[in-house]
């Protein structure tokens, strides 16, 4: 298994090195993959896990403050349309993209405080509101607009989150980031 991975890695990183704009307080793992031709912006205190892949070939990628992008995620995947837009993916502040989730490029917007669950897929041009929860393996079709505080279930069911704990959740995210910063060795210099 590990030998397989090694054979893939160089091929991917051989792609174009994108221009980046990093805040000085971000944490980005050495083995994160940043490719593409457009600008990738990562704002303050966000964490990019190892082997997360950000591809700006189809447009700009902007990641807000205190976001967590987990392993094996794919942000800026070129969708079926293959269209190149000015902004590919925009993540608001306090967004969590969990393991193996993929977000297609094409003016896709994820609102503040939203959690994209494990293995979820978000289609090109979808707009997810603020403080939404996408449960694992949810698929959002391209162009879908999800209102704020929606809980999306993988079977297509929805519910409105009435807890009103957005602030608490953000606080929790900040605390989690504190821990992650100590655990993940950061190497932003590799990408600049």
């Amino acid at each position: 298994m590990s030998s397989k991975r090694h054979s893939i890695l160089p091929a991917v990183s051989a792609g174009p090195k994108p221009p980046v704009h990093f805040s000085s307080s971000i944490t980005i793992a050495d083995s994160a993959l940043l490719t593409g031709t457009n600008l990738i912006t990562i704002s303050s205190e966000s964490v990019i896990h190892p082997r997360a892949k950000l591809d700006s070939l189809a447009g700009r990628i902007t990641i807000g403050r205190r976001c967590v992008v987990h392993e094996r995620t794919m942000i800026g995947a070129i969708g079926t349309s293959g269209k190149v837009t000015e902004t590919a993916v925009t993540l608001g502040d306090y967004v969590t993209v969990e393991v193996a989730a993929s977000i297609e490029a094409g003016n896709t917007i994820i609102g503040e405080g939203t959690t994209v669950g494990v293995g979820s897929k978000i289609g090109a041009g979808a707009v997810i509101g603020k403080h939404c929860t996408l449960t694992p393996h949810t698929e959002i079709p391209a162009g879908e607009v999800i209102p704020d505080f929606t809980v999306m279930y993988s079977n297509g069911m929805r519910r409105v989150d009435k807890r009103g704990v957005a602030d608490l959740k953000n606080k929790g995210q900040a605390r989690q980031i504190d821990v992650l910063r100590r655990m993940i060795p950061s190497n932003p210099a590799k990408f600049t």
Binding site: V151, R163, V165
Partner: peptide
Amino acid sequence: SYCNWSSTE
């Protein structure tokens, strides 16, 4: 923990 439902709702 899956869908964030809370009994406070």
